[in-house]
Design a protein around this nucleic acid. Sequence first.
DNA 1: TTTTAACATTGCAATGTTACGATAAACATT
DNA 2: AATGTTTATCGTAACATTGCAATGTTAAAA
Lengths: 108, 108
Amino acid sequence: MGATKTDHFTNKQNQIATIAKALGHPARVAIIEYLMKVNTCICGDIVNELPLAQPTVSQHLKELKNAGLIKGSIEGNAICYCIDEKTLNILKEYFAKIILTVTNQKCC
Amino acid sequence: MGATKTDHFTNKQNQIATIAKALGHPARVAIIEYLMKVNTCICGDIVNELPLAQPTVSQHLKELKNAGLIKGSIEGNAICYCIDEKTLNILKEYFAKIILTVTNQKCC
DNA sequence: TTTTAACATTGCAATGTTACGATAAACATT
DNA sequence: AATGTTTATCGTAACATTGCAATGTTAAAA
């Protein structure tokens, strides 16, 4: 098949999976790291930072945007991208909760 | 193409992407949640908890294991699975660092 | 207005993922 | 030994992802 059976899972499970999936590629992790490193939202310049062709980078940016991990606003000729930390925080809090629960378990 | 250019990215970027990718499917998120909920490592019983056929579940478990998110030990007839919180913690700490950095930025 | 710059979109080839039936392997039970 | 239970593996069909060349689109610059 190849198609994920999303309707069999909860909204939360699908939400977490969607965000995690967007971060499931090193190029997209690299984009996030770059946006963090430059210490401001960056207009243009992302393509030159990655070892990938422009259409490929554009596609990765689109996926990060769809997942809510970055925001992009048109700034004249270029586009200004920055990290949306709210979405990252959803993942962080989710993992923190699991880790806390699991650490208190008597197991294996 | 379809093949990820892993060699163009750092080890850390590939590590984060690999772990995130493993969590990028609702069935695998559901497995993690179930392992957390039962409050102990569970032997068997995972297949019945998911709306998927046994070979599919087995495959998802394998991917979680490869990513280091769960550990499995043979327990007689069944196999005992539990969460490896160390791997989850790598992701959590990574996100926490990004969130902290980004929140202090004057941006957009 | 033509040109340039910065991204987006389209189309396609190569590869990866998801799901499951069939089958195998390993052990427990009878 | 024969049977059942549990998990893994194989094979394969359907679909998704990755990457890029070619081509649009939009707005600044000349």
